[in-house]
Design a protein around this nucleic acid. Structure first.
Length: 273
DNA sequence: CCTAAGTCCTGAGTGC
DNA sequence: TGCACTCAGGACTTAG
């Protein structure tokens, strides 16, 4: 589910649900089944009683900022957070809050991550070392930047634009959409993408991510905002999931193929180059 | 049977 | 032969 717009949507939802009053962590309970990465138990016990200061987003990660530590959450493919004191199948984390509410993490496929680490370790945390710029936050993300990153790369441009070391936040849905918006064929070798195409791609990436944030993300099957509601950017998708449907611009049938292991969609007429 | 929003790991291949 | 790097493919898991 969650690419940058979905994580940003969850972050904003959590902020409005949890804030602005002071709330602190009473206890954190983990389910029996493990997520992909899990916190050290002794660190978990250290955060009891700490106040929740903020909810942040770094790339596709959520960070609950406490007094001395961060709780890091990655939603994987099917993760979601909610406030609700009932229990459901696939609930894996319960965070008991000082106001009596319970913040619960739900994740059917358990591709998600949950970790705890001291604030001082943020910059050196292996999860964040080597990540590219954030398109909706960093001015360093530009066409010229992409052009530099694409030098000497024979991998398809779609693989590179989804590579979190090149740029964070872009997953399979928005990679397809951004390439369509900039009329670039997803199979094109990155090194052959022109500087001008890079400008278009950078702008399309920023635009599509911001538009999706405004829509509260894309809900295909699992994605839920922190309040439980769904996004609605799926109503505006131009190519993703539209195999054999007609291009909204030129009426040619949309094609699909696996690129870099992920299903990819493009218009063979609009995205020749 | 097939597919799925993400990330990490392994192994093959290339160039030096 | 070895090192560093790139790239392709699979693994993880459950639901529909």
């Amino acid at each position: 589910m969650p690419e940058l717009p979905e994580v940003e949507t969850v972050k904003r939802g959590l902020e409005s649900i949890l804030g602005p009053g002071p709330v602190s962590i009473v206890q954190i309970q983990l389910g029996v089944k493990k997520l992909r990465y899990n916190p050290q138990i002794e660190l978990l016990s250290q955060v009891k009683g700490q106040q929740l200061r903020a909810v942040r987003r770094q790339a596709k990660y959520l960070l609950f900022e406490l007094e001395s530590h961060y709780l890091l959450s990655h939603l994987g493919m099917t993760g979601s957070w909610r406030i609700e004191n009932d229990q459901r199948k696939h609930d894996h984390i319960q965070i008991y809050l000082s106001d009596g509410r319970i913040l619960t993490y739900h994740d059917a496929r358990r591709f998600g991550m949950f970790e705890v680490f001291p604030k001082s370790a943020l910059k050196s945390h292996p999860r964040f070392v080597g990540l590219g710029p954030d398109p909706v936050v960093d001015l360093g993300f530009s066409g010229d930047y992409l052009y530099q990153k694409f030098r000497g790369k024979t991998a398809p441009v779609k693989v590179l634009i989804m590579d979190q070391r090149v740029v964070v936040g872009v997953g399979n849905i928005y990679a397809n959409e951004a390439l369509y918006l900039s009329s670039i064929n997803p199979l094109k070798k990155a090194s052959k993408v022109t500087r001008q195409q890079c400008q278009l791609l950078a702008k399309a990436t920023v635009d599509v991510l911001n538009d999706a944030i405004e829509c509260g993300g894309t809900t295909i099957s699992d994605f839920k905002q922190a309040g439980g509601s769904e996004g609605y950017f799926q109503n505006f998708l131009l190519v993703y999931g539209r195999d054999r449907e007609l291009c909204r611009f030129c009426d040619a049938p949309i094609r699909s193929a696996v690129v870099g292991g992920r299903n990819s969609f493009w218009c063979p007429r609009c995205q020749k180059k």
